[in-house]
Amino acid sequence: MTSPYPIVTMIVILAAALTLAAGLIWVERRLLALWQDRYGPNRVGPFGLLQVLADMIKIFFKEDWIPPFADKAVFIVAPAVILVTVLMSFAVVPFAPGIIISDLNVGLLFVLGMSSLGVYSVVLAGWASENKYALLGGVRAAAQMMSYEVFMGLALMGVVLLAGSFNLTSIVTAQRHVWFVVPQFIGFVLFLIAGVAETRRLPFDLPEAESELIAGFHSEYSGMKFGMFFVGEYLGVILISCLITILFFGGWLGPVLPPIVWFLIKMMFFICFFILLRAALPRPRFDQLMSWGWKVMLPLALANLLVTGAVALVWSS
């Protein structure tokens, strides 16, 4: 059920995702300010909306400096990797019936694959910078994302079991009667936590913990290369919110309003939740993060999969 004009859909989704990612910078700053009892950016344009534009002009004209000691080729490739992998994932996201670029049969696995390739961006940036703080950030990122990817995939297998497909459109249509958040609540919580860790948002931003590592893996980056990490992070937040909406909250399904509006409402809700997490939670220590992932989340994900499989087996027979 792909759209009749794939090129148009492609361009619209690309433009919308990038605009939304830029707009999120403003949304995040305003919301954080609201929760912290201050104003946030409110000078440039109405409600400070043009602040994003001003920031973008600034970042485009900043000097793009490559340290002489860095591994030049890898240093340049690293920020591109994150943008490419995240934007590729958007290709299989069904926003509404007909608004999808490629209705791939293994859509969910494609997203997981792209997110696991996204790790290279951070890791290689840390390595190529030849800076001990950046290297520590890269090593942390590799360990963190490896650990959290394992149960991220496992948490989703419950949904795949219930829907009987890796295709994201079929997963949405399988939720016509009940959203998967009800039978798969543990899976939802696990995926939410893993999603925050995958996007390296607070409280899981240890790869760039500024209080201990300056800026972690992107310490040496400046100008638009830094901007690409920044936009990549926000695109990641949008992607994870889209995935939560599709996998657990019935995607575009909903009464009265058109499908795309329902999708956007649900997606924005989770984006705001991501921002609230940043305002509310402190950063854990790295060993706590790792032992939490392997000793709590992984067994929980396995148990969830086991129970779901048993129930599905009994149900079908």
Partner: peptide, 28 residues
């Protein structure tokens, strides 16, 4: 074989090679 292709990306390119890069980085 789209399923095998996806597994190739997730497991080989995405997981095992990250471990390799991780070890090389740790040894630096």
């Amino acid at each position: 074989a789209p399923f095998v292709a996806a597994l190739e990306v997730i497991i080989y390119a995405g997981a095992i090679m990250v471990l390799f890069v991780f070890v090389v980085m740790l040894l630096n």
